Amino acid sequence: MTTTNSTTRRHDMQNDSHLTAKTAIPSSLNRRAALGGLAGLALAPAAALAQSAPWPSQPVTIVVPTATAGVTDIVGRLLAIELGALWKQPVIVDNKAGASGIIGSNIVARSAKDGYTAVLTFTSLYTAILQSPPETLQVDLLKELTPVSQVVLSSTLLTVSSSFPGNTIEEFIAEVKKNPKKYAYGSYGPGSTSNIYGELIRKQAGLDLVHVPYKGSGPLTNDLLAGTVQIAFLDIGSSIQQVRAGKFKLLATNGPKRLAQFPDVPTFQEKGFDGLQTSAWMGMLLPTGTPRDRVEKFSRDIARVMQMPQVQNRIRDMNLEPVGGTPEHFGKVIEDDMRIWGKAIDLAGVRNVK
């Protein structure tokens, strides 16, 4: 699906005045040298000329590294609509699902460093990087992607199908222990935050659960509804409507305190589980080497979008929290999360993505 709308802001081009047709050629140069110099200007690399052009002056692509219909996809399309209106240029959403965000992020890291291809990714990208042996990663994403803006915050829920024989986390643990190997839990993908949550619960509670990875929350939500899988660690935006409709049961939430939407549902921490206190997020990144003014403009415009009342309402309707921070703030979030999630991964005993 393609979203078309956007905004163009012209940069000051006075610094390029020396390239105008009025530039004088010193008389000491002969005619051949002068013509050779002008030919050199005509053959200047397109990338160099592009840096002096207003940005954006052509369509921008936001890669969403999940399948369609999941919460990341919905946020990406919402951003595309509003950024397109600001920039007066088409903003295209391109879904490239797989490997907990690594596949789509690799594509962006290898793209031109001109600000026209970005990735809207999530915490699971970095947990997957932490779990992957360096030799298995095609691109060093920590070096080759640069932070633009943290976009939203989210929570992860332990949900079960309505037919699951248990209504509390204690009953869940008892049922799974009574039936080893009977149940499987679904996650967003190998190495994702939901995979880590599942392994933390499995290990700390002593459960015999099978992991079933999906390419994002959309397919996982559909299979939980269909009964293909009966247990899932899902983000709140993908699951809350199904919980409210009675199609999913909500047993516990991550984070340091109970959710305002579900004050009667305990946190994992309350129930004695360790390593599940950190909130998840979505954020925008560009290829490292993108001109700094374009990174900063992208970030400022995301912040503008996140302050729009209609956007805040839509984001909060999905039970997400709008952010729209600076590149520096987002960089610090990533740095802190690498440390926090590294400890959680060690606690869960999952170091290699499979």
Rank of each mutant, 00 (worst) to 15 (best):
T68V: 12
A44H: 08
L35K: 08
P45W: 00
T72I: 07
P56A: 00
A50T: 11
W55H: 06
G76P: 05
S57R: 09
G36I: 05
A46T: 01
P56N: 02
P56R: 01
P59L: 03
L35C: 05
Q58I: 01
T66V: 14
A48V: 12
V91S: 06
L86N: 03
I74R: 11
Q51F: 07
L78T: 14
L35W: 08
A48R: 04
L79E: 08
L79H: 04
A50S: 14
G36Y: 03
L43S: 03
R77C: 14
L83C: 12
P90H: 11
P65T: 04
P54C: 01
G37C: 13
L83R: 08
A67G: 10
L83Y: 09
T66G: 05
G84Y: 11
A69I: 07
S52C: 04
P45R: 06
L38T: 12
V75W: 02
R77S: 15
A50Q: 13
P65C: 08
W87V: 00
W87D: 03
P65W: 04
V63E: 13
S57M: 05
S57W: 05
L83T: 08
P90K: 00
L35F: 09
V64P: 05
A39M: 06
G70P: 04
G84D: 02
P59Q: 07
V71D: 13
T68Q: 10
L86S: 01
G84F: 08
Q89F: 00
L49V: 02
A44M: 14
P90F: 02
G40I: 02
A50I: 03
G40T: 10
L83I: 07
I74G: 12
I62N: 07
P56W: 06
A53Y: 01
I81R: 13
V64W: 08
G76T: 07
G37Y: 13
L78Q: 15
I81D: 15
L38M: 10
S57I: 06
P54K: 01
K88P: 00
I81Q: 15
K88Q: 09
L43N: 12
G40V: 10
P45N: 01
V71H: 09
G37M: 15
E82L: 13
G76L: 10
A33G: 07
K88G: 12
R77L: 14
Q51P: 11
I62R: 09
A67I: 03
P90D: 11
A46F: 00
G76Y: 06
V71Q: 08
L86A: 04
I74W: 12
A42P: 02
A42W: 02
P59H: 00
G40R: 13
A53R: 09
P65R: 10
